[in-house]
């Protein structure tokens, strides 16, 4: 589904503090599977996810989605692919404070301009499915960590994406909440979605919900 060929990513290129986060990654990611990227801090996990999720372009190399090279597309098209194909669950959840859970969930769908009633219904269904129906009108800053993460998951699903990208999803959760997250992960995978996540949490890496673990160190692959 996603093919990465000779991916390099540099920061501050050409300057004295030039730093290569990724150096020659060749990888194929299968559809409808849960793949975890494992590695220490600074190994390039997040950089790799940003490139796969069209949040950033590689300095060198190619990214193919369903066989089509998307690494050179203009920003507008890249944004459209990002919005329709990928749903993101960030480590800090990145919800918009001051807005309700429901409003946060609907945000990624605004640029699509879908009818409001349809969008509202979908957001409510998603929140109910994640046991947050009763909290839909609460401001996100009033929610617990676990609830905030479930709002973030609902937001990631609002545009019905094929791929869910989660960056260190259990980093801010206790064991119970982490297990709840893994259960949701299995559910998403069962629906036929592709899940890509980064983690160095053994609970996640060893979980039966994760089908494949890819190791990274110093910007290179180190075990699959």
């Amino acid at each position: 589904m996603i093919q990465l060929t000779d991916i390099h990513k540099a920061f501050n290129q050409g300057q004295h503090n030039e730093y290569w986060a990724l150096s020659g990654i060749d990888l194929e990611l299968e559809a409808r599977r849960v793949t975890a990227f494992q590695g220490p801090s600074g190994s390039g996990k997040t950089s790799l996810l940003t490139i796969v999720g069209c949040l950033a372009r590689p300095t060198r190399g190619r990214v193919r989605l369903h066989g089509e090279d998307i690494s050179g597309l203009p920003e507008r098209f890249l944004t459209e692919i990002r919005r329709r194909t990928f749903g993101f669950v960030f480590q800090q959840f990145n919800l918009i404070r001051g807005l309700s859970a429901l409003d946060n969930v609907m945000l990624p769908a605004y640029p699509e301009g879908k009818p409001h009633a349809e969008l509202l219904q979908r957001a409510e269904v998603l929140l109910a499915r994640l046991q947050l129906g009763h909290r839909r009108h609460a401001r996100v800053e009033w929610l617990s960590g676990g609830e905030q993460q479930r709002v973030a998951i609902a937001r990631a699903l609002i545009n019905d994406p094929e791929v869910i990208i989660a960056d260190e999803p259990t980093a801010n959760l206790d064991t119970t909440l982490s297990k709840q997250f893994l259960a949701i992960l299995e559910e998403l995978s069962g629906e036929g979605r592709t899940v890509l996540l980064t983690s160095h949490d053994p609970l996640v890496i060893k979980s039966s919900a994760v089908h494949r673990v890819v190791g990274l160190r110093d910007g290179r692959l180190c075990g699959d």
Binding site: R76, T79, R82, R83, F88, N94, Y110
Partner: peptide
């Protein structure tokens, strides 16, 4: 910083620069 963070989030979840 709050507003910049907000704009960053909106762009990450699929808003275009134009939006």
């Amino acid at each position: 910083a709050d507003e910049r963070r907000e704009i960053g989030i909106l762009k990450a979840i699929g808003w275009e620069t134009g939006d």
